[in-house]
Each structure stands twice: as structure tokens, then as C-alpha cells.
């Protein structure tokens, strides 16, 4: 038996909006420890992982682990019927073929869950989520890829298009900066990675969920773009860097 109740449907809507460009169908794996989702995009170069903590819900009951395969576009369509401050309830019985209230058909999705190590990144940048979104959007009008370089002074975004180049440098702020403006850098050594802008732009759909975004980078590893939600834990996006050959 699974019962989830959230008094702010808007939060679930924002979560869905932030992932449905990247992934069409996904398994919500619900357990006593929370609801998690891990899914790859169709080209398998990007991935997302999501955790919704039980204490983020007004009511959370999950008697045994249950995996709900859902079409995210259908789920978003149904949630559009709820306004942001409406209460949404998701029930799934042990028959596991629908969630009631919405009576949405569940799917069987074969997915491979991957073990993702969290630590050991060479450079970690925290910056305002809205600033990161604006930079990705602006550079996306110029080039297809962006080179993100982190040094102890700041984070640099460079792109090259058919007709011009663009370079944006964001300097690390002082410790007294306001949270919504702060840019902080933890770095073992400078890192520079080239990434497809269309994926980064898709990740920034999660901007309404958090004030700050955390970007973790290491050579030879996928970049991690993380949004920490105030009451629901996190959503993380992973993208394989492009390698010049």
C-alpha cells in the first residue's frame, strides 16, 4: 500500500516540468526512505536522479517497496488539473497497475539503476540557479557547446558559434554575499569540460525548485548539476562531457 499526500501540488508540478524534457517514461521507486527516480535520456549521455524525502510530504505511507512506471507527459497533464496550492494524493494498491484519484495507467519499464558515487569531485561551484539558467540560455543562442572552466578565481563559460564567440566570467563572491547572489568555489585543481548546451538548458528547467545550483566537475567524469529543494531533498542531472579527438 502506498499513500502520498502533498498539500502543495505546485511542487510536484515543478519537479515534473524540470525532468520531462529529458525523460519520457520513468520508474518512481518508492520505499520507506522516500521516493526516488533515476533515468537516462534516449541518447544515454545525460541522466537524472531525484529524491523526494518522506518528511517533505504531509502524509507518507509506503508499506513495501513499490516501483511505479509512469509516462511523465501523462502525469504532467493530469497534474495540470491541480492548482499550485491544491492537495494532491497518490495512492497505489498492491495490484500496482494504477494510481487512483488520477486513475492513471502505470507502465512496466525496464531500467538499469546505476551506482553513482557522490564524492571526490575536483571542482565544486555553487552559484545562483537563475544566473546559471540565464548564461546557458544566452550562450545557447550562439553555440552548441560550452566550455566550463573553474579556477580559484571563478567560473568561466565559453562558447563558439558560426559567427562569433562568447565568454562569460563569474567571479567568486566574498563570504558575506547574500545567498541568492553568492558564488562559491571548492577546488582541488582547475577543471575545464566541454558540454552540450541543449542538455544544460534542459537541466535549468529545475531552476524554480532552488535558489542555488551546485555544479560538480572532474576530468573524465560526467558533470553534475544539482538543485537542492527546500523540503524535498534534491534533483541531480548528469551529463557526459564532449572530448575533442
Amino acid at each position: 500500500m502506498l499513500e502520498l499526500r502533498l498539500t502543495r501540488a505546485g511542487l510536484l508540478k515543478k519537479v515534473l516540468e524540470s525532468i520531462r524534457d529529458l525523460v519520457t517514461d520513468a520508474n518512481f521507486d518508492c520505499a520507506a526512505t522516500g521516493c526516488s527516480l533515476q533515468a537516462m535520456d534516449s541518447s544515454r549521455v545525460a541522466m537524472l536522479s531525484l529524491l523526494l524525502r518522506p518528511d517533505g510530504f504531509e502524509h507518507y505511507r509506503c508499506d513495501r517497496n513499490i516501483s511505479m512506471g509512469m509516462n511523465l507527459a501523462n502525469m504532467a497533464r493530469m497534474l495540470r488539473c491541480a492548482s499550485d496550492d491544491d492537495t494532491v494524493t497518490i495512492n497505489a494498491d498492491d495490484a500496482q497497475d494504477k494510481i487512483s484519484d488520477y486513475e492513471m495507467k502505470l507502465m512496466h519499464i525496464t531500467s538499469e539503476n546505476l551506482e553513482i558515487p557522490e564524492a571526490g569531485y575536483e571542482a565544486i561551484v555553487k552559484m545562483p540557479a537563475s544566473l546559471f539558467a540565464r548564461i546557458c540560455k544566452d550562450l545557447g543562442t550562439i553555440g552548441d557547446t560550452v566550455m566550463i572552466s573553474v579556477t580559484k578565481e571563478g567560473i568561466q563559460f565559453f562558447t563558439r558559434g558560426d559567427i562569433r564567440t562568447a565568454n562569460i566570467f563569474c567571479r567568486k563572491t566574498t563570504p558575506v554575499a547574500k545567498e541568492k547572489e553568492a558564488i562559491s568555489i571548492e577546488m582541488e585543481k582547475p577543471v575545464s569540460l566541454t558540454l552540450a548546451l541543449r542538455y544544460l538548458i534542459s537541466f535549468t528547467k529545475a531552476t524554480p525548485l532552488a535558489k542555488q545550483v551546485t555544479i560538480s566537475m572532474s576530468y573524465g567524469r560526467p558533470i553534475v548539476v544539482e538543485y537542492k529543494m527546500e523540503i524535498m531533498d534534491h534533483i541531480r542531472f548528469y551529463l557526459v562531457p564532449k572530448v575533442e579527438e
Binding site: R44, V45, E112, N113, L114, T145, A196, R221, P222, V243
Partner: peptide
């Protein structure tokens, strides 16, 4: 040429 591997090659299966 820009080469891009799949994300599955970076992580092990659970």
C-alpha cells in the same frame, strides 16, 4: 570530432 560516450560507461550497475 567531438566524441561522446554513454553515461552507463561511467557508473557501475546497482
Amino acid at each position: 570530432v567531438n566524441q561522446q560516450s554513454q553515461i552507463t560507461s561511467f557508473f557501475s550497475k546497482k
